[in-house]
């Protein structure tokens, strides 16, 4: 072994105390749970010698906070994670914690590459940003997310009819089990948009048509899982795959939506963060 610090090539990596990361979860690894992925992240960060701030107590855990949980089996191009580094840690000589104002975007870029190399196939850190103000937590900040679904059991025309029916309905009731009891919920208030995708249709051997559906769903009054959307589309519809493509914050009058990364002034690398002006 050389004298260079573990996992980090010189020069010293300068990072802010508070960071938000965007990562993708694609391929086979999507069958791991949110909890599994949290452990995978923790191990990758230890391998990268990130001086994570830890909770107090007999079993201190790193202070990582994940946003909306991604259902097991769903993939995503837009997952987020906040973390805090410890200025005073001496265990990571290759990393220095500096003021967020002094961050060089190249450091964030290096951090993305470093973590991606430590993560399993299919999990990649695609953006990093310094957090500097009193940002809301991811749980509070994210107002909606976009999904690409692939469903089986209906043809494209039939699916379009179902979508139209669903959007025209006053209420879209689905049932789920909660604490051993069946609970009925109305999804309609959470469905912002829904349409049959114009991606080319394909046929899966032994299963028939694969139909793409694009959905945008609000996190309030309650989040909507891809499986529930499928259930709402009809009994014969089953989910083949689902990918979260965006998570959005909104301004107060809901005229602009932006990725949780792109608050004014934060540095950002990787795929460009996205801001959209919503049509009135």
């Amino acid at each position: 072994m050389s004298d260079t610090p573990r996992g980090v090539s010189s020069p010293v990596l300068e990072l802010p105390e508070r960071l938000r990361l965007r990562y993708a979860k694609l391929g086979r690894v999507r069958y791991t749970s949110q909890r599994d992925l949290a452990r995978v992240m923790e191990r990758a960060m230890r391998r990268a010698s990130l001086p994570l701030r830890r909770s107090a107590g007999f079993s201190p855990r790193p202070l990582l906070s994940f946003g909306l949980a991604l259902p097991t089996g769903c993939s995503s191009r837009a997952e987020y994670l906040d973390l805090r580094l410890d200025h005073e840690s001496t265990t990571s000589p290759g990393i220095r914690v500096v003021d967020a104002a002094d961050i060089d975007p190249a450091s964030l870029h290096r951090l993305c590459a470093l973590l991606s190399a430590m993560l399993p196939d299919g999990v990649d850190v695609t953006a990093a940003a310094a957090l500097r103000g009193p940002e809301m937590s991811l749980q509070e900040a994210v107002a909606s997310c976009d999904w690409e679904l692939e469903v089986l059991g209906v043809g494209p025309a039939e699916a379009a009819g179902q979508v139209e029916r669903l959007l025209g309905a006053d209420a879209v009731m689905v049932t789920r089990e909660r604490k051993g009891r069946e609970v009925a919920d109305d999804l309609r208030p959470s469905i912002l948009s829904l349409r049959v995708a114009d991606r080319p249709a394909r046929v899966l051997d032994g299963h028939g048509d694969v139909v793409g559906i694009d959905a945008s769903v609000s996190t309030r009054p309650r989040g909507v899982r891809p499986g529930e959307l499928c259930q709402a589309l009809g009994d014969q519809v089953t989910l083949l795959g689902a990918c979260r493509t965006y998570q959005w914050m909104e301004n107060e009058d809901r005229t602009v939506r932006a990725e949780p990364l792109s608050e004014a002034g934060v540095a950002c690398v990787g795929l460009p963060a996205r801001t959209e002006v919503l049509g009135g």
């Binding site: 791991t32 097991t72 089953t238 989910l239």
Partner: peptide
């Protein structure tokens, strides 16, 4: 296609 419908699908994916 079986993995959506089973408990703990990560048991079967290696990686």
């Amino acid at each position: 296609p079986l993995l959506w419908h089973v408990e703990k699908p990560a048991r079967y994916i290696g990686g």
